[in-house]
């Protein structure tokens, strides 16, 4: 099973940019430990949310043929806290998608607040790693992960 950490896409321009929503909820168990009495979303999980948003953007750009793996977090600056009840808007912009990799500039906002700036590099691993062989099957984009995009309606409807 693959862990899904964003709720839905609200904008998607193939190969260019994608916007996803993540609702932060006190039903997420880790928030009770991070921190007791002061629940805030861990910064690492903001990176994960941006990685999933941009991973799908990068994968879709090449028809989900590549195994797209997060290779480097080039920037992660956190400006504000994300708390239970916040709806995070994750915007990923593809600066470059080439044969072997892609670079993303990402911004996380909540209403008018900038929560974080996160830039990432993804590797198309079959095109890198000096000839190492990976499983034939695309273990990155399984059905569960792909459903996220399937429910996105380009007309702006919320999906069902």
């Amino acid at each position: 099973m693959r862990w899904i950490w964003i709720d839905k896409f609200v904008e998607f321009e193939s190969g260019k940019r994608a916007v996803a929503i993540k609702n932060v909820s006190l039903a997420e168990e880790h928030l009770h430990d991070h921190f007791p009495g002061y629940p805030i979303m861990p910064a690492s999980l903001m990176i994960e949310a941006m990685a999933q948003t941009s991973g799908i953007l990068v994968g879709e750009a090449r028809g989900f043929r590549e195994k797209v793996i997060l290779a480097k977090v080039t920037k992660a600056v956190f400006h504000d806290l994300a708390r239970p009840g916040d709806q995070l808007r994750l915007e990923a912009v593809a600066d470059s998608v080439v044969e072997e990799a892609a670079t993303i500039t990402g911004t996380i906002t909540c209403q008018n607040r900038t929560i974080a700036e996160i830039s990432l590099i993804f590797s198309h691993i079959d095109k890198n790693m000096a000839g190492l062989e990976f499983p034939e099957e695309n273990f990155v984009f399984n059905d569960q992960f792909m459903n996220l995009l399937q429910f996105y309606k380009p007309t702006g409807a919320t999906g069902s």
Binding site: A71, E100, T103, S123
Partner: peptide
């Protein structure tokens, strides 16, 4: 190795 990509970009 991945830094080389970053540098090129």
């Amino acid at each position: 190795s991945i830094d080389f990509l970053d540098i090129v970009f």
